[in-house]
């Protein structure tokens, strides 16, 4: 099979796996995807509302230090969630029925904008989030038992390390995608 025409003939005669007859499965899956997208929008909205409600519930606005601490932490989470949502929404909007090169150009520009999120916004928001947490520490120390304060401190440090590692992996993954597109 060393002649191209022969390769082509063989290719077109190649027996392919049998075709599933039922298109209902495809239609149902498509509707399911749309439903899941709707659910994530609702979950996102509820998360932001819960965070704001929590802020009001603990009356953080009455105490300046707690206001800034909790406000910064909740604000950072809300901003980052919205960024991620808008970014995903942008990518989902790229039509797949355009030419491969055009589609790739859109993907490259998308992942470049993700680099700005990863290298600028994420570290900035992450640092602000930690700063907000540090602001809350004296309040925790004052109001919680010594053991529980130590627990919060250690578990938070471990969470920050895990989060930073996770972000690092995500950035690495997306950088690989950009490389494969170029």
């Amino acid at each position: 099979m060393n002649d191209f025409q022969h390769i082509k003939d063989q290719w077109q005669q190649h027996k392919t796996p049998s075709q599933p007859k039922n298109i209902e499965v495809i239609i149902a899956k498509s509707k399911n995807i749309a439903r899941k997208q709707q659910i994530s929008k609702v979950v996102l909205g509820i998360t932001v509302l819960i965070l704001i409600a929590f802020f009001v519930y603990v009356s953080a606005y009455k105490n300046t230090r707690a206001f800034w601490g909790l406000g910064l932490m909740i604000g950072c989470i809300c901003i980052r969630i919205m960024m991620e949502y808008l970014s995903g929404f942008k990518k989902a909007g790229f039509p797949l029925h355009q030419s491969m090169n055009h589609f790739n150009k859109q993907l490259i520009s998308y992942y470049k904008s993700r680099k700005i999120i990863h290298y600028l916004w994420t570290p900035l928001l992450f640092a602000t989030y930690i700063f907000g947490f540090v602001l809350l520490l004296p309040i925790f120390k004052q109001q919680l038992s010594g053991g529980f304060y130590t627990y919060i401190l250690i578990s938070s440090i471990l969470t920050f390390i895990a989060l930073a590692t996770l972000i690092g992996f995500q950035v690495k993954k997306e950088l690989k995608i950009i490389k494969s597109l170029q």
Binding site: P17, P20, I26, K29, S30, P95, L96, H97
Partner: peptide, 21 residues
């Protein structure tokens, strides 16, 4: 074959979604 069948299904899900376009 197994992966190709999954991918073909993914393609037709997209076709269904974009058909109006």
């Amino acid at each position: 074959e197994a992966l190709a069948q999954d991918m073909a299904q993914e393609v037709f899900i997209k076709v269904w979604q974009y058909l109006k376009d």
